[in-house]
Design a protein around this nucleic acid. Structure first.
Lengths: 197, 197, 197, 197
DNA sequence: GATGAATGAGCCTTCATTCAT
DNA sequence: AATGAATGAAGGCTCATTCAT
């Protein structure tokens, strides 16, 4: 007796997730009340329970959604280089583009990280995402290496992981309130190190 | 007997903090009950309240303690180089030494980070710690630069912040279960990049 | 079903207030547990919290309700005189009519009084009620004065306040267990004093 | 092995009672903590327990002490008349003398009243005090009556109770913040009524 | 499908009271 | 005789969750 198409279900889930992401991001996973989310959605608490069995399932879904976003973020790391850019210009365009997004959902990123530290499936997903992203980034770096834009002696696979880690770490630095400019320069300096002089 | 014997009071506070750190680390700040801590300490809940006004104050104290530890961790980055080591050997010895410590209370660090994202005084403290550490690390790098162990074109100050961020990021990567070896290599590769070929 | 049906909400609030009045009256404001009230109502503690933000708000509501009752009590002082009654007969009919009511929730009145002594808004309300009642009673007395039923040299306004105070005081006396008869006679004697010989 | 004379014990009890009266008066019986009292006394909580078995016993003692004071207050009603004063002058001197004291411990009076409503022995004591005071006041009024200062048709015994009730009631009026002047005048008007024109 | 209402379980916090020293 | 320290027993309040309608 499904009155609505599964499409609607999915649509509703998404709307809930979007709102939940906002709320969780502002207040934190465990300080956010189901009521908080419901109010912001303009529906009753019970309504949310039609789409998510319980708060944990909602958190998991948010975790997955966040990891999905993270994955895309990482994939896009170093993507879209124009042939005219130098390696460094390219690298800088990335950080400058991302910096606002990063700040926006920064705390959520760490909430998910903590959640992952206590939730195997989330942790596995996070690990897998990093792995896949590492491979993609490594591929891009390999290309740069071939084009002699980066130092020849560097192994692209661990380097890729290193850059991803750096990206994560800058997020942490941004969270403390250290300015965008400083953060950009930190990124630049390491990119300069990576780049072929 | 101890009228104004801050010794005992301090001792008790410390014991509470140690136990709380363990518990918070395993369960998380907001999932941990005062009772959880009390039980593990073998005292009543009320006892804790004679040393800390409320849960928040306890969390803050732990936040500060953790940040203190973080500060020391960062300060020790690159310290203690033997004259015989190459820059790279030195850098690797650091990461290998730290990696176990890092994994130990890793999730607590992130809990504190999130706490800091919503607690001005904690956030300010974190920021200050990073700043100070940046200066110290920059100084060490400056020395290396003078000794021509690292690339001449690199600015040590932003580079220092970059390495600190990298350190932070590797902590995040470690949390996912990615192996020590891979993490070490990621660090190495970026150090190689920094080092003068 | 009741979306914005204040009817139900109001009804529920009232039922809670009625039960709370009983309970507070027997046990006292600060000795009564939210659970005490909930049990007597046959609902959960949490249910009460959807109608009253916290215990204080419930107490305030009861304070206001009690003051409202008090106001009516005072207003009715000396009301409804039949033309055939003498002033004294009239005065006595009042006290005899009220005496049972007075005893019923007597201790609650004093609880509210104490609450008022530490709660500005409640105190102001109490004061206002007394003022208004004084004016009404003074008006009635003025009428009696014109009809030469009470002593001509008496100023009705302060006299009204005096009689109200007397009424209050007799409530206190009744609380001690001193008999109705004695209390009635005390009232009579002062009324005799007021009445024109 | 009594190190101190019983005199000391009594002395200490008294000091505790005095401080407790102050504290209870400001904060109320059930909101006042043993710690509140101890702090104000400058001793430890445990010290109070050497003199009073528990809080209830302390409250009872305060109740008794308050009733004792009340008794004296009532006894002094109409006492000390100089032969030159008129009855009314005399009555007014009383209220003016008492008004400050009344306001000071007004809320305590009502706390004791409520306590009495739930504590047989306190209630009995209160009742007895009022009875005795009634007799004394009645005696004084009888004297006035003989001197033709008050209306001949008044029965002094119930009149005495009425005046005591009035006194109680004015205390309640004062508690609401109604001014001293108004209260004095209310008292005067009823005294005028009692006095022989 | 959605909601208003209710609830059980649990958490933080307080406080009268005890007791070893 | 006094106290610092500790605690058991609440009590207020919150919140994820359920369910009749």
């Amino acid at each position: 007796m499904p009155k609505v198409l599964p499409g609607y279900q999915q649509e509703a889930r998404k709307r809930i997730i979007v709102t939940a992401v906002e709320t969780f991001s502002e207040i934190g996973f465990h300080q956010t009340t189901m009521e908080d989310i419901a109010k912001r959605l303009g529906v009753s608490k019970a309504a949310i329970y039609s789409y998510f069995k319980n708060k944990e399932e909602l958190i998991d879904a948010i975790g997955e959604a966040t990891l999905h976003t993270l994955k895309e973020e990482l994939d896009s790391l170093f993507k879209g280089r124009l042939s005219t850019d130098s390696f460094l210009e390219w690298a800088m365009s990335i950080i400058e583009m991302k910096i606002e997004d990063i700040k926006k959902y920064s705390s959520l990123h760490f909430e998910v990280l903590i959640e992952a530290s206590r939730n195997v499936s989330l942790r596995r997903m996070l690990k897998e995402n990093i792995r896949k992203a590492t491979i993609i980034v490594a591929g891009l770096l390999e290309e740069e290496k071939r084009k002699r834009c980066i130092r020849q002696e560097l192994n692209t696979r661990p380097l890729a992981l290193g850059l991803i880690a750096l990206f994560f770490g800058l997020r942490q630095v941004l969270l403390t309130g250290i300015g965008d400019e400083e953060v950009s320069q930190a990124w630049r300096e390491l990119m300069k190190a990576v780049a072929r002089s």
